Amino acid sequence: MKKLTLLAVIISSIMIQGCVHKLVTVPTKIAYKTTKGVVKGTVAVGKAIIPGGDDDEDDKKDKD
């Protein structure tokens, strides 16, 4: 009887490992993608607000 209980506990713990992995990784991926989008949006807004534009384009025109 004790062997059967031990076997059931081992099998259950192995099956639950997949669920625990999903519970940790899925919210992390969502948070990463959300933060990445917010940062990109902030950079775009910052570039639009700051006067003077992109200096790289001006440098290329001066060299030609």
Rank of each mutant, 00 (worst) to 15 (best):
G46M: 04
G18A: 14
D58S: 09
K2D: 07
V9F: 09
T5C: 09
L6E: 08
C19G: 14
V39F: 07
S13P: 00
K36Q: 12
V24F: 13
V43Y: 00
I30A: 04
I10H: 03
K2T: 05
K36H: 08
A8D: 02
G53F: 05
V38C: 02
Q17P: 00
L23W: 10
L7W: 12
D64L: 15
V26D: 07
P51T: 10
I11V: 15
I14G: 01
I30E: 03
G18T: 10
V24D: 05
L7F: 14
G41M: 04
G53L: 10
I14Q: 02
E57K: 14
D59V: 08
I14A: 14
V26G: 02
K63Y: 06
I10M: 11
V43T: 06
P27R: 10
V24I: 15
T5G: 06
K47I: 04
P51C: 03
M15Q: 02
K33P: 01
K61A: 14
D62Q: 12
A44E: 08
T42L: 15
G52T: 09
I16K: 01
Q17S: 15
P27Y: 12
V39Y: 07
G41C: 03
K29A: 13
K33G: 01
I50R: 09
L6T: 07
D59S: 06
G41D: 03
L7H: 05
I10R: 02
K3H: 07
V38Y: 06
G37I: 07
T25Q: 13
Q17D: 04
V26C: 02
V20I: 15
K61C: 05
K47T: 02
I14N: 01
V43W: 01
V45T: 02
L4E: 08
K29F: 09
T5A: 14
E57F: 14
K29P: 00
K63W: 07
G53W: 05
A8W: 01
K40V: 10
A44Y: 01
D62A: 15
